[in-house]
Amino acid sequence: MRIRHTVAAVCGALALTAVLAAPADAAAGDFSYRFLAANGDVRSATLQDPLTETCVTLPEVADPGTSVPAFAPHNDTGDYALVFTGPNCTGESWLLRPHGRPATDLLTLRSVLLLPV
C-alpha cells in the first residue's frame, strides 16, 4: 500500500516539475508603455514579442524609491496582459485585452505578465 502511494507521489511531483520547467512561448506582437525619464521627459518603450507566463519588471521604473510608475500601457500582442502597480508582478493588477486600445495615462504599472488566450 505504501509503495503505491509513494509511486503516485513521485509521479505527481514529476508531472508538476515538467509543467513548471516548460519553456515559455513568446507573445506575438508588442507591449508598449510610457514613462518619465530622469530629466522629466516622457519617453516610450516597447517589449517586442515578450515571453508569456513570465513576469517582466519594467527596467525604467523597477525601483519605487527612485522612479514614478510607467503609464498608458498598450497591449498589441495576441495574449492578455496583466499589468501590476508594483515590481515583480505585485500590487494591484488590471487585465488588458489582446490587440486592445492604448490605456489612459491614469493606468500605471511597474510590471506585466502576458497570459495566453
Rank of each mutant, 00 (worst) to 15 (best):
Y80V: 05
C89T: 08
P98R: 04
L113D: 05
V117K: 03
A72D: 10
D105I: 00
G86R: 01
L82S: 12
G100H: 10
A18N: 04
R110Y: 06
D79M: 00
R2P: 02
T104P: 01
T57K: 08
G29W: 02
I3D: 15
V56T: 15
A70R: 01
H5C: 03
A81P: 01
T46H: 06
T46V: 11
R110L: 02
P116H: 10
G40F: 13
E92Y: 14
L113F: 12
R97W: 15
L115Y: 07
D30I: 03
L47R: 03
T108K: 12
G29Y: 00
L114G: 04
S111I: 05
D41G: 07
R2W: 05
A18Y: 02
A70V: 02
A62Y: 06
D76S: 10
L16F: 15
D41L: 12
A45V: 02
L107Q: 14
L95N: 12
A27E: 09
I3G: 03
D30W: 08
D30V: 11
D105M: 03
G65D: 11
N88Q: 15
A15K: 05
A81H: 01
R101A: 13
Y33L: 03
L36D: 12
C55S: 11
F31C: 03
C55Y: 04
L51Y: 10
L82M: 13
L58A: 03
R97N: 14
F35T: 01
A81Q: 02
E53T: 03
R110H: 06
L14C: 15
S111K: 01
V19C: 14
L82T: 08
L58D: 09
V42E: 14
A103G: 05
A62D: 09
E60G: 09
V61N: 05
L107D: 13
A9V: 05
T46P: 06
F84Y: 15
A62R: 09
D25P: 04
D25T: 12
H74N: 07
V56Q: 14
F84S: 12
A62Q: 13
V68Y: 13
F71V: 06
L107Y: 12
M1H: 11
M1V: 01
L96V: 07
D63V: 08
A81S: 07
A21I: 08
R34S: 14
T108H: 11
Y80A: 12
P87E: 11
A45G: 11
S111V: 04
V83F: 08
T66S: 12
T85M: 07
T85P: 03
E60L: 01
A27N: 10
G12V: 03
H5F: 15
